[in-house]
Nucleic acid binder design. Structure first.
Length: 316
DNA sequence: AACCAGCGCAACCGCCAACGG
DNA sequence: ACCGTTGGCGGTTGCGCTGGT
């Protein structure tokens, strides 16, 4: 935790842009502050964080209030240890999504992105390393030692931290727009990252097509304004991505695996319940997934071909 | 009992995208 | 089109706890 202080009374000269006002309190929250914040939000609702502290009578910055509410005070926040099935889920999602904690958290009821991030950094990354697995790439360390020196695992370049879908519970009807340009690497180092992300995108498109949508619908039309092959827009909506992730989590969707037999229908909105069985399946299929990912990678500009070639898998 | 090192996690920071005027 | 505000994200920090010596 940070050094508790009142800004303006602290001797540090470091600027704090978010809480730059004199008299703003920092550091751990007291039970009294928690109560004030919780009561206020219950009464007035979330939002308008910048002005909330003043309205609620708290000597905190809005950002701090939001963080405290989101990560600790929200009634939906689950306290306590991460269960084994949750851990499996985190591992699986991280393998797919990289360090996109909010997206991972969105698939694990009651857990916050901060909690998952901490758990990953303190437990899971070490666990994987002890097993000889690179926590960033989920590949054996001896195989990635060279690659990791060239590329960071995060499938999405830093300039695009937000995934196609960021928070399923809050986006509502928003559609997600992704351009392939968004994921194009700026240099050779990022090429592998791009490809990994692209596989997920393609896989989602494949899955969606198997659900009955047309390829042009999901993948969008080629952009005449850009004129570059592959520069089309992909429009995924909230439900599509949510279902896509569910299918991945429940191991009912192996990337473009045309030989995969239909799996039992997963329970909707209950990703944890099926995690234990899914994990067993996942563990046994882990290498297959890896192979499928690699085999489904396509060069830039061939996305549509890949899409058309691999849409035969049917989710049950 | 005292000290120390390592760990866990709450909180902060900087950045970015979305939005509205 | 521009600019300021707001909300949200991932990375990082450092306090306090715990176990070992």
């Amino acid at each position: 935790m940070r050094n508790p202080s009142l800004l303006g009374t602290s001797t540090t000269s470091k600027s704090t842009p978010c809480c730059s006002k004199v008299g703003i309190k920092r550091g751990p929250w007291t039970p009294e502050e928690d109560e004030v914040l919780a009561n206020y939000i219950k009464r007035e609702g979330e939002g308008r964080w910048r002005t909330l502290p003043k309205r609620a009578g708290l000597l905190r910055c809005g950002k701090s209030c939001r963080l405290r509410w989101m990560n600790y005070l929200r009634p939906s926040v689950k306290r306590g240890r991460i269960a084994p099935d949750e851990e499996d889920l985190i591992l699986r999602l991280h393998r797919l999504l990289g360090n996109r904690w909010s997206l991972i958290a969105g698939r694990i009821p009651g857990r916050t992105d901060n909690e998952i991030k901490n758990y990953w950094n303190t437990h899971l990354s070490k666990k994987l390393i002890s097993q000889g697995i690179d926590p960033r790439t989920h590949k054996p360390l001896n195989l990635v030692s060279h690659a990791s020196s060239q590329a960071n695992h995060d499938p999405v370049p830093k300039s695009h931290p937000n995934p196609p879908h960021s928070n399923s519970s809050e986006l509502g009807e928003k559609s997600i727009t992704i351009t392939t340009q968004d994921f194009k690497p700026t240099n050779q180092e990022n090429h592998q990252q791009y490809q990994s992300q692209h596989v997920v995108d393609n896989s989602m498109a494949n899955w969606y097509n198997a659900e009955g949508a047309s390829a042009t619908h999901i993948m969008g039309q080629p952009s005449s304004s850009h004129g570059n092959e592959g520069d089309y827009i992909e429009n995924y909506n909230e439900d599509m991505f949510s279902s896509f992730l569910d299918s991945l989590i429940n191991d009912n969707y192996l990337f473009v695996n045309q030989q995969q037999q239909p799996q039992p229908q997963p329970q909707p909105n209950n990703v944890v319940a099926d995690a234990a069985s899914a994990d067993q399946n996942f563990m046994s299929h882990g290498n297959i997934w890896e192979a499928e990912i690699m085999s489904s990678m396509v060069p830039f500009g061939n996305e549509q071909n890949s899409f058309n070639n691999h849409h035969q898998h049917h989710r049950p």
